[in-house]
Design a protein around this nucleic acid. Structure first.
Lengths: 163, 163
DNA sequence: GGTGAAAGACACCAATG
DNA sequence: CATTGGTGTCTTTCACC
């Protein structure tokens, strides 16, 4: 059931709504060579099929109290499956964990964390280690600046080459 | 001009639209104790003031060709201001660079990169180093799995404590 | 892909604190 | 006097052909 067949119309559409999901179907129809009705039906399908997961507003950190951002590398005691699952759920449930990747290399997880200040961040990480016994160590990189911030996945058209 | 004064209505609204920006003003009005008209005016203001930067659709990687994700640490030859600026612009312009943080610690930048496959990723990083002479070294962590993916910044209400 | 009905957003309104 | 909730109009979406 995975790996939907997406034609180039779908792919164009995905690129457009990733850039701006507030566009009307009419405006989208101008950019993709389709009628508004067709756009509508495709968008509904893409949402129902889970290709489009959700639509969100991006807020400017400067405007909401200048929160800090941290990139955190986690080392976990390898391999206790239940504890690993618990950690994943913990990360998912914690709103200040924006992103969590399970990675190769020296670290096991890389997190992107946001917090209003360093104290809150410290408290959060203290809770993380105390409530997840398999987390053996972590290193923090404080973000001094954000050059770019997005989740857009470029969707290549079928006719295009990969690069 | 920065650091807008946001009351608790604005803050609630920001939390709601970060979770789901496709809600109607009427549905938002049910959750915030305001009329649809008030919600509308506030949303427009938040957009105009740049508190809400843009609205985007989040797509499921599994459904668009299972692209890979990489967390990259960049070391740059410190300090050649013009080259640093050039690097920032390069990162911004490159669609496969999802996020770029300027950080403290051993690395200077941390990137989150997406690419359809490892070859494309390699080619991208080759271009990065060849077109940015100040990038001295980088280390790659391949994401084996994504536990969580979002950009939501929790906006605390004025009456609430930080934690 | 087009068309008519329903829903939602937008531009004004007087009212309120 | 800024901000609210309400009303009419226009736009956009939705369901059906």
């Amino acid at each position: 059931m995975r790996q939907m067949k997406l034609d180039n119309f779908d792919r164009q559409l995905l690129n457009l709504v990733q850039a701006d999901s507030s566009q009307t179907t009419e405006r989208l129809a101008e950019q993709v060579a389709l009628s508004p009705s067709a756009i509508q039906r495709r968008l509904r399908r893409l949402r129902e099929q889970g290709v489009i997961v959700r639509e969100t507003a991006l807020v400017e950190p400067k405007e909401v109290g200048r929160p800090s951002f941290f990139v955190v590398s986690l080392q976990v005691e390898r391999e206790r499956p239940e504890l690993l699952m618990q950690l994943r759920k913990w990360l998912e449930a914690e709103p200040r964990i924006q992103q969590a990747f399970y990675v190769t290399g020296e670290a096991d997880f890389v997190l992107v964390v946001t917090a209003p200040d360093t104290e809150t961040y410290d408290a959060l990480m203290s809770r993380l280690v105390s409530e997840n016994p398999n987390v053996s160590r972590f290193t923090t990189n404080v973000a001094l600046g954000i050059v770019k911030r997005g989740l857009t996945i470029p969707v290549p058209l079928a006719s295009e080459n990969s690069d």
